[in-house]
Every structure is written in structure tokens, then in C-alpha cells.
């Protein structure tokens, strides 16, 4: 596209003095350099806490607290990690986080796709009302449902259980919205063709629609898995004993009180929670961008 634009402009440029060209190019280079410098400074400020966290996890507590602060660890040590895994049952916390996130993600994919298909491609009584309700809840803050959800979970006997951690998050209005938007953008012809061939709606959904939903499902998977992985207020209240703690809960409870001064240890804990997610994010980053574009404006 860019080359086309340049080509199209060329004829009008023929008569111009080459001087103007040169100054423009030079000022462009300066401008670009400034942009790169500013953007780099900005990005360093953004990721510095992460770098500091990783470096700190390899330092002794004495070294972290020393003034003036050093940047690189002088005697890199794995002590913090050894202590972390020795003292706390991080394997359990990690497993709990994975179990909850996997079920929450699966639920969101299955339920959002199904209702998304109905909302996007089927005509039925109550459709507008259903979609209206879903959109309406997008604006409701989490604290509004918090108390009744706790009363409900408590009366169902689900406190300190996996269902208690999973059930309230199996559906999200945003997931429904995303799947509806995506399925709506698929052409009707393929559905009509399958209907003429005598395929049932369920068969159409499973064999025609879902195979085309790859990109939307990818986005939904990443966003929900991540949301669940980082979720911490609900698990903090519902998981009441150590064997049900998720990683953020364990870290939050562990990083207060007397442990708060154990900076190296805390940084190591933070690294264990953050780095897997950051790695996945770096690999899949283009889907994040798509996700926001899909749910937001186009």
C-alpha cells in the first residue's frame, strides 16, 4: 500500500527541487530517532519492575536492602527459590491454579459458543431480551454480586471446594459478546447450504460453525485463562485452607506480616506467578491484540 501511494505521488513531484526532498528526509530521520528514544525510555520504565523482580529473586536479602542499591546480583543465589519450594507447597498451589483456570476456560468456550451461535444466527422468541440482559451486566461492578455469591456458595456447601472456585466464572458476558460478534461475521450462505443438505442445527454448529471459530476461540481461551490465573479476590475468600489455595492467594497471604521483609523470597514468589504468564503472552501476543479489537471497536 505504501509503495502504491509513493508511486502515485511521483508525477507531481517531478518538477520540485530535490532540495526540499532532502530536508524533509533529514527531518524525518531526526523525528524518527527522537521517537525511538522516547519509546525506548517509556518501555524501559514499563518493564523495569519486572527486570528488578527477576534480578532481586537471585539476590540475598541483605543485598536487596543495601544502600545504595545495586542493579545486578553480586553473588547470584538460588536460595530464595529453594526456600520458596521447601517451605511452601507451591506444587499444590500451581496445580490448583491450573485446574481452576482449565475448567473456567472450557466452560467459557462451550457456553459462550453455544449461546453466541443462537444469538448471531438463529431467530427465536426472547432473543433480544437475552442479549440485552447480557449487555446490561457488562457494566455491573464485581462488588455488587460479591455478597450474594458468597451467601449462595456458602449455603450450597461449596466454600473451600473446586466447584466453589469455578462455578461463578464459567460464563462471562464478555465471552458471549465476543463469540456472538465473531459468529455473526461468518457468511449465512454456508449455514443455509448445510440446512438445505438436511443438517440439524447442532450438526451445523459442531461441523460448520465451530471449525471456523478458531481465531475467536483462541482469543477467548487466552483472555479467560489469564483472567482466572490472576483472579484473586474470590479465591482469597472462598479458599479457606491451604490445599485449595491458588498461586495468587498463597502469594498474597504469604507476602504480609513477618515474611514481608523477606524481599528476595517474595520476589522469587512473584517470578513463579508472573513469568509463565509473561512467556505465554510473548508467544501469543498477537491474539491479545486481536482480542481487544474483537471485543472493542473495529
Amino acid at each position: 500500500m505504501t509503495s502504491q501511494v509513493t508511486d502515485a505521488r511521483k508525477p507531481t513531484d517531478v518538477g520540485r527541487p530535490t532540495d526540499g526532498h532532502r530536508t524533509r528526509r533529514r527531518s524525518n530521520t531526526t523525528r524518527k530517532t527522537v521517537l525511538y528514544v522516547v519509546l525506548t525510555l517509556g518501555v524501559v520504565a514499563m518493564v523495569f519492575p519486572f527486570i528488578w523482580m527477576v534480578l532481586g529473586s537471585f539476590k540475598t536479602n541483605a543485598e536487596i536492602r543495601r544502600s545504595p542499591l545495586g542493579f545486578l546480583p553480586e553473588n547470584p543465589t538460588l536460595d530464595n527459590y529453594a526456600q520458596l519450594f521447601g517451605r511452601l507447597d507451591f506444587t499444590t498451589f500451581f496445580t490448583n491454579s491450573v485446574i481452576v483456570a482449565v475448567f473456567v476456560t472450557l466452560g467459557n468456550i462451550v457456553f459462550s459458543s453455544m449461546v453466541g451461535y443462537a444469538l448471531a444466527k438463529l431467530e427465536f422468541a426472547g432473543k433480544r431480551l437475552l442479549f440485552g440482559m447480557v449487555l446490561g451486566t457488562l457494566m455491573v461492578p464485581g462488588v455488587v454480586t460479591f455478597v450474594p455469591l458468597f451467601v449462595l456458595t456458602s449455603n450450597l456447601g461449596l466454600v473451600n471446594s473446586y466447584p466453589g472456585l469455578i462455578l461463578p466464572f464459567l460464563i462471562t458476558p464478555l465471552g458471549v459478546f465476543l463469540m456472538r460478534q465473531f459468529i455473526g461475521s461468518l457468511p449465512d450462505d454456508i449455514i443455509e447450504a448445510a440446512r438445505i443438505d438436511g443438517a440439524s442445527e447442532w450438526r451445523i454448529f459442531l461441523r460448520v460453525i465451530m471449525p471456523l471459530c478458531g481465531p475467536a476461540v483462541a482469543v477467548l481461551t487466552i483472555l479467560t485463562f489469564l483472567g482466572s490465573w490472576n483472579n484473586f479476590l474470590w479465591p482469597l475468600v472462598v479458599a479457606t485452607s491451604e490445599e485449595k489455595y491458588t498461586l495468587p492467594v498463597a502469594l498474597a497471604l504469604y507476602s504480609v506480616g513477618q515474611n514481608a521483609a523477606q524481599y528476595g523470597l517474595m520476589m522469587a514468589g512473584a517470578v513463579v506467578v508472573v513469568i509463565p504468564v509473561l512467556l505465554v503472552f510473548v508467544v501469543l501476543q498477537r491474539y491479545f491484540v486481536q482480542g481487544i479489537a474483537l471485543t472493542g471497536i473495529k
Partner: peptide, 13 residues
């Protein structure tokens, strides 16, 4: 990157 990071970990740093 900060968007995808757990607030608990962020708080520590």
C-alpha cells in the same frame, strides 16, 4: 506486559 501480570506479584515489586 503489566496488563497480563498478577496484581499480587506487582504489589510485591
Amino acid at each position: 506486559a503489566p496488563v497480563v501480570t498478577s496484581i499480587v506479584a506487582i504489589a510485591i515489586v
